[in-house]
Design a protein around this nucleic acid. Structure first.
Lengths: 129, 129
DNA sequence: CTTGACCTTCTAGTGACTGGAACCCTTATG
DNA sequence: CATAAGGGTTCCAGTCACTAGAAGGTCAAG
């Protein structure tokens, strides 16, 4: 399986897969011509990474998760710990974004959006918060 | 007013203010010894930037907003347009994060988090989505 | 034999800072 | 007068997770 095929199978761009090899997340073999060959296991790992990344896990967390996945003697507590930390981070971002959304939503509603210069958005930005 | 003072007044780190000068958002004068001197107007601009950034506007949008703020003949429609685009981006991120939160929340709940290896989180990650 | 689609490596850029090194200026103190 | 503390300055490198692009090798089809 070459890089394009495994990319199509996992939804990852070839560039990303090369990057993941660079940082040691996968280690595909090479053909005599230098081309990467991806085994079933490589493909599996890449799919795992794609899924974990799509849930927003940082790449370093993905590395840890992959190691735990490989470790058949793992404790699920270790996995849960990583997931909980990430969940907390997501919640932090959600809170922050919601606050922005609220404020900005009100301001946009209040703005006439015509050709006059008067603007509550600018007024807010110019006001020391 | 030197950089530390204006930083304290606006809540911006000195490094950030220097960076903003680098990219042309403010242009403080210099004393004979090379130190930056911030005028009232500089301070005002920096406070504006701090507020706009805290609402999540990208720096380039901040630049546009600042220009509109300075332009007394602006149309509020131009401001509103920038704000609406940013609002759409915030909503996009909120949707994405909420989906992550939902999935991950369920998985974390389902995971025993003990010393056994069985783990629904890893099971999900290993499952082609 | 050439064309086109693959593949390779390498460098540099993204956004918005942030850390750190190396050095200058000013003021207070021993 | 030396020095130490606490400002200021510049410049370079690093962050995160890719992504764009250049320059070139390989391979199957026509």
């Amino acid at each position: 399986m070459n890089i394009k095929e495994v990319g199509a199978a996992t939804g990852l761009p070839a560039k990303t897969i090369r990057y993941y090899e660079d940082i040691g997340l996968v280690s595909p073999n090479r053909q005599s011509n230098g081309y990467r060959v991806f085994s079933e296991n490589d493909q599996h790992k890449l799919a795992f990474l794609a899924r974990a990344r799509s849930l927003g896990f940082p790449v370093e967390s993905c590395r840890s998760l992959l190691a735990l996945y490989d470790d058949k003697g793992r404790a699920s507590a270790d996995v849960k710990q990583i997931a909980k930390e990430h969940l907390a981070e997501i919640d932090r971002k959600l809170t922050e974004l919601s606050a922005m959304r609220d404020t900005l939503g009100h301001l946009v509603e209040a703005c006439a959006g015509d050709d006059r210069p008067d603007c509550p958005i600018l007024k807010d930005l110019a006001t020391p918060s």
